[in-house]
Design a protein around this nucleic acid. Structure first.
Length: 572
RNA sequence: GGACGGGUGGCCUAGUCAGGAUAUGGCAGCAGCCUCCUAAGCUGCAGGCCGAGGGUUCGAAUCCCUCCCCGUUCGCCA
């Protein structure tokens, strides 16, 4: 692939040959040294036992046997490690030429032909997206982008829960609460307008038994297949969803497909799941008449190992319909990924076993994230203890606007607004995705609006900086001559650029999206150090080569930003 | 109570899967750096019993055991 992989392969072959020559074919690992200037190292400690020599001796012997060749420029030993250095000339030429040749495609892995379905967001259409839930679309969308870069055919999908009590409550509220009697939110967006009815309906249901009865009745009619109720609930969900889509679009998230939960009831596939489940050896029925499968032998723990898939009246449950949904996804995908909140862990596990019982060979790959809370505690849409994503976006964009205005007097108002949006949204996405998903996350405005250091704007700033230099340079002749790029900062930058495709592979295929912002920061930081230490435009004979390095950095950064769903501003 | 996940300088965080050399980066703090390509930047300083204790190993933030703290979950809810 790239020079980084070539170098690693050469190190592996050279080491294996040297070991074979000395009569010991033992396994060894190759790692990136945590200390010193070498680029790769082979620790010899685990070889010591089988070879019956000290690690230090082994390392010295191996280092003496391996001759630098190809992309390996030097081999040495220290403290029981064999250290390998990459040939700088090869590194510079290969890396820069590959980036220039591939451009937007630099970092992209060869096509796999694998169809990957990524379900994400899927929040209940009962209220606006709050910053707790926002982790889902941001992680999901970033993962989907990375999987595409990994050469897969990716479809993103939102499962719309237009079935069940929550949406019925909302619909009851919208249909029965007079317009003037709720405090409508100021924001002119359907999700914000409707959530007021949802809150009020919940409150009324708790306080007034008559209302509770009306809602129960509506729910019964819904379950019984009353087309009027089903239709109006779906209609309400649709309206709500328009608002949610707008919020998602504002953070550069657009899903390929929306699948409605009620469709699995309407088309009979949920009922088909029920009849198939009933025929399995795991199925049973309680005295009341509800059906379950016993998952005890699958290692499901807890007080109750029974997984119920119909109510006593025969109607289906959320998870039953989710089984039908997953079978639908299996029929059109090779890999199915679900981005879920950690509260779904048990449900996801039950789903997996139920699918297995039904004979499915494919299994969903869940990806869980921990909840985001506020310093004062958990968020709750119903109680109104929330920070909405829309408010966060506004706040971040406003803050970015102030920053731009304070340092630029030559930009048009429109341009400043436009750029502020790119920066504000970038800051939000970066801030969310930089943290490992399973880590608990306490939302603070200070962190969310951080534009310095390890932040989205830091990467964008470097992109803008590189663009500015290239603008000033005008036309120049590209030059990847390694004899003109010998400064330590230049070499370090090139090394970082050469790693991109391996980072993409990890972020996508291993579903470790948080490595991507870390990498972006590494690129930007290496660039800033280079920028501070090495003159470019005024560097005479080296100028073209340095400008080439600037251009390559810009390309890599833009590709990283693209994978992160962040804009790459040309000035800021 | 069981299951699952998290615990790394004042705060946030990487590294844990595949044990290795001096634990990553940032924020906040202190001290420097714009007559020079965007200072949303760069350089330096200071700050750590990697939750606690035991074990395995030549070697443990990383593996094993026990315990503590935080989160999630254990519905004929979604």
């Amino acid at each position: 692939m790239g020079i980084a992989d070539d170098f690693r392969n050469e190190v592996e072959i050279a080491t294996r040959n040297a070991l074979a020559e000395s009569g010991s074919e033992v396994d060894f690992i190759i790692e990136v040294p945590s200390v010193g200037d070498a680029d790769l190292a082979v620790p010899c400690f685990n070889l010591a036992k089988t070879m019956r020599k000290s690690p230090k001796d082994i390392a010295e012997k191996l280092a003496g046997m391996i001759r630098p060749s190809g992309s390996i420029s030097a081999v040495s030993s220290m403290n029981g490690y064999v250290n390998f250095s990459i040939d700088r000339g090869v590194l510079v030429t290969e890396t820069l030429n590959e980036i220039l040749a591939k451009g937007d495609g630099y970092g992209r892995l060869p096509p796999t032909g694998v169809r990957v379905n990524v379900e994400h967001t899927s929040t209940n259409p009962t209220g606006p997206i709050h910053v707790g839930r926002a982790r889902n679309p941001i992680i999901g969308d970033t993962l989907a982008r990375c999987l595409k870069m990994c050469g897969n055919e990716v479809v993103t999908e939102y499962y719309v829960n237009d079935v069940g009590k929550q949406v019925v409550i909302l619909t009851w509220g919208v249909e029965n609460i007079p317009k003037g009697s709720v405090e409508e939110e100021e924001r002119d967006k359907t999700d914000h307008k409707l959530v007021a009815y949802y809150r009020k309906a919940n409150k009324m249901m708790e306080e007034d038994p008559a209302v509770a009865e009306q809602i129960s009745d509506m729910l019964r009619r819904f379950e019984a297949g009353d087309q009027e109720v089903i239709g109006s609930v779906r209609h309400t969900a649709q309206i709500m969803l328009e608002g949610l889509k707008e919020s998602l679009a504002n953070i550069n998230v657009a899903l390929d497909r929306y699948t409605w939960e009620s469709d699995f009831i309407a088309d009979g596939s949920a009922a088909s799941v029920v009849s198939r489940m009933k025929r399995t050896d795991y199925a049973g029925q309680t005295e009341d008449g509800s059906w379950y499968v016993d998952l005890a032998e699958f290692g499901v723990n807890g007080k109750n190992t029974k997984f119920t898939f119909t109510r006593s009246d025969g109607t289906t449950l959320y998870t039953t319909r989710d089984i039908a949904y997953h079978m639908s996804k299996f029929s059109r995908s090779d890999r199915v990924i679900d981005v879920l909140g950690e509260d779904q862990k048990l449900g996801s596990q039950q789903l997996t076993y139920a699918l297995r019982i039904l004979g499915c060979v494919m299994e969903p790959e869940p990806m869980f994230y921990a909840f985001v809370s506020l310093p004062e505690g958990k968020m709750s849409t119903r109680k109104g203890v929330v920070v909405y994503l829309d408010d966060l976006i506004d706040e971040a964009v406003e803050r970015a606007y102030e920053e731009i205005r304070s340092r630029r007097d030559d930009m048009s108002e429109e341009r400043m607004r436009e750029t502020a949006r790119v920066i504000g949204v970038g800051a939000i996405r970066y801030n969310v995705v930089r943290v490992q998903p399973e880590k608990q996350f306490v939302f603070t405005w200070k962190e969310a609006l951080n534009f310095d250091g390890n932040s989205g704007p830091y990467l964008q700033y470097v992109h803008a900086r590189a663009c500015s230099m290239l603008r000033k340079a005008g036309d120049f002749e590209r030059d990847a001559d390694p004899s003109k790029l010998t400064d330590e900062y230049e070499i370090k930058l090139v090394k970082v650029l050469s790693k991109f495709s391996s980072v993409i592979a990890e972020a996508g295929n291993q579903k470790r999206v948080h490595v991507l912002p870390a990498y972006g920061h590494e690129v930007a930081s290496a660039f800033n150090q280079f920028y501070a230490a090495v003159p470019v435009l005024s560097s005479g004979a080296s100028a073209n080569a340095r400008l080439t390095l600037v251009e390559c950095s810009k390309i890599v950064l833009r590709n990283v930003l693209e994978c992160l769903g962040m804009g790459a501003p040309e000035e800021m």
